[in-house]
Design a protein around this nucleic acid. Structure first.
Lengths: 126, 126
DNA sequence: AATATTAATGCGACCAAGTTGCATTAATTT
DNA sequence: AAATTAATGCAACTTGGTCGCATTAATATT
């Protein structure tokens, strides 16, 4: 099941690159310009997550947001980092702040999902 | 708009007390014994959150879970604490582990939502 | 104790996010 | 150029959660 290159996949990646933030399917659909089916966008995003190109954040609004893993690398973000969801501009940002925790070895931790919510620095002064 | 005491509200609280964990509407409905409407349970839960009796956690499954704030107090949990969602027994636990982070003052942080996901200590040995 | 007030409930309809089945299209292999 | 099968579009569906509205019942008032 080798992956194939398509215009849709490229378009999704380029939108994520250009905004530099984590985006929901809806936000991507709005920004992407061309008309791409909702289900297709979800499938592209899910595939990228499987392939380690994107990571998925579930925010406290219950929705999924997707962010480039490369973006995180560039800014030297740790594997598990905080995310900030701005309620005004409706974007999610990967923060350089690492998530630290200690937990009994009896627990098997598989995923870490930390989201701060509020007004981001761009929106707080406007 | 003074709150009124009802059997439904008591039943919801007592289920949460008896399990000692954060529960979704669905889990509460299953455990509660009596037949209570879905919308009503949600309304009860939302009211309790407004009143500071419960707090709401949105897990990485995108669903809302509700936990007693008193439970947290008892175990001396900090205001912002980690939560652990077990994928096997489908419960969420409030952990005593506090959430620490530092972020630029330019951001206005209003909510903190941190969930670890995996297999809890009760399920890992079974 | 009887009545008035209005919060709480049940029901059904509704919405939004996300997924899935299936026929069709098109990227890669041969 | 033909064959293979991943990717897409569409519609239907699922699930979590909310809302409007008529009805019920907890509290306040008499």
């Amino acid at each position: 099941m080798r992956r194939r290159n398509t215009a849709t996949k490229d378009a999704v990646l380029s939108v994520l690159h250009s905004t530099g933030k984590a985006m929901s399917q809806g936000a991507i659909e709005k920004e992407i310009g061309v008309d791409i089916n909702r289900a297709t966008i979800y499938r592209v995003l899910n595939r990228y997550c499987e392939d380690g190109v994107l990571h998925r954040i579930v925010a406290d609004d219950g929705r999924q947001y997707f962010a480039l893993c490369v973006e995180c690398d560039k800014k030297q973000k740790p594997l598990h980092h905080f995310h900030f969801r701005c309620e005004k501009c409706e974007t999610i940002e990967c923060l350089p702040e690492p998530v630290h925790f200690s937990i009994s070895n009896d627990y098997k931790v598989e995923k870490v999902n930390c989201v701060l919510t509020g007004i981001c620095k761009d929106c707080v002064n406007s």
